[in-house]
Design a protein around this nucleic acid. Structure first.
Lengths: 252, 252
DNA sequence: GTGTTTATCGTCAGGCAGACGACTATGATC
DNA sequence: GATCATAGTCGTCTGCCTGACGATAAACAC
């Protein structure tokens, strides 16, 4: 049977990005304000159409660079300097998810260190880092008491899935280092875990665990007091990507 | 800016299925023979176009039913009788993955108990359960000594990703029961783990682990000797979906 | 009955995590 | 400069879980 273009319906394919970072002890996601209908004026995840000659991961990396200036790493490589971890998250294709047409969105998850203010096409008022708790508080109220409109399209679901992926993945991988600057202390890494999981961890047990896991952390020799208190050793991410045994998330 | 249909390139969207089962102590996948170009005569994963009014999970469930007669379960529900576990795996969209046109494939992973011979459009010679090891032996030789052509398209990659997902997911979830009939013994469940992981497990420690995990197994009261030896208790899958602590995969 | 197979219960030692005490080295404050 | 607050780092102890493996139980084949 020869190829028949009428045998399949045409779809638009987009990539949407869940870009997570840790700011001020809170897990935050990048949100952009929609300038056009539908959902005009509402907050949404950054994203865009996949181009005709582009792979999905290329499209995601391009969108990430356009929105944040970050370069993406290979998903299987350990976190390194000056870039973000980027991996495919899941694909969303409900026929009604976009009222204009049939759109299938391949969502990606990016993890980045704390960044300067975002730029969305150069217009800062149309992009921001917002605590995920706030973005997911459907119909609730933000930190400033203003009512918060839910995210556009099915982006609340996508963000929720991305956050859950990040929460579970830092358990058994060294991915939490993707939230840290190139050199970081054990305490800074612990605050990442605490922010992502929303729990408090025992500093002593955490220190024993991460320094005792071979290949997780490599001391650089330097120290810093940027967190106050006694000077802390600086580390880089080691070559290990999988933590065995995993970091245990406290119950409840 | 109004909606402009020319602003995005059209894609074909398909679902491809990695359907896994355990037969004769080996992890097997469903393969179908391609009847048309490209890759005519080669083995491939079952799949097809997503219809215009269909969600991705619906399309995957429809393809699964067409190929195997199985009904799909909700991915978050524990395994139950008469159906298969079905979940989204990943999406593959390399511009060159299909030489005819731009196709984005949303791969799904299905886990099923051992089934009767498959039916591919009623033609049994065009569908079979094959050990994944054999399907992934690129350019190697199958069990019968015949040379084996690699799977069509990027289906070897998709199958490989699906197998890895299954291998890791039975560690921390009760998903291994999806490979079992509605009632099964601890030994049968252990043989599932052994087939999927390709290792031997200690029957005594395995028994202690699975019977000691609350909500994993529920005794039905019956016994069976279908495996020979001393009669074994029969169990159903319990309500628990996550195993904590996980089942540990032996090193190396 | 004897041997084989599979299921099931027990024991023991080692490893790891949670709880928490103790000490150290900075900056901030009086 | 003494004191305090803040973080970081090292230890100890206890309990749980796992891996290794001995022992017993209940079926079937001969």
């Amino acid at each position: 049977m020869p190829y028949d273009p009428s045998a399949f319906p045409p779809f638009a394919v987009t990539v949407d990005l869940v870009v997570l970072t840790v700011r001020r002890h809170a897990l935050c996601a990048l949100a952009v304000r929609r300038g056009e209908s539908p959902f005009q004026g509402r907050w949404a995840l950054p994203g865009g159409f996949v181009r005709a000659d582009e792979d999905l991961s290329q499209a995601a990396a391009r969108e990430l660079a356009e929105e944040t200036g970050l370069r993406a790493h290979d998903p299987d490589a350990p976190a390194q300097e000056g870039g973000a971890h980027l991996e495919q998250l899941a694909t969303y294709g409900d026929p009604k998810r976009d009222p204009r047409m049939r759109v299938v969105s391949v969502a990606h998850l990016a993890l980045a260190p704390d960044l300067p203010a975002p730029r969305a096409g150069g217009d800062a008022s149309n992009a921001r880092w917002a605590p995920v708790e706030e973005l997911l508080a459907q119909g609730g109220y933000g930190r400033d008491g203003e009512p918060v409109a839910p995210l556009a399209f099915d982006h609340a679901q996508i963000l929720s899935d991305g956050v859950e992926r990040a929460r579970s993945k830092i358990e058994y991988s060294s991915l939490a280092t993707a939230f840290c600057p190139p050199e970081f202390t054990v305490g800074e890494l612990r605050r990442v875990y605490e922010a992502v999981w929303g729990v408090a961890l025992d500093p002593r047990n955490f220190h024993r665990k991460v320094t005792g896991t071979p290949g997780f952390l490599v001391p650089t020799g330097g120290t810093t007091t940027r967190q106050g208190g006694r000077p802390a050793q600086l580390f880089r991410a080691g070559g290990a990507t999988l933590l065995n045994p995993p970091m245990l998330r406290p119950e409840v």
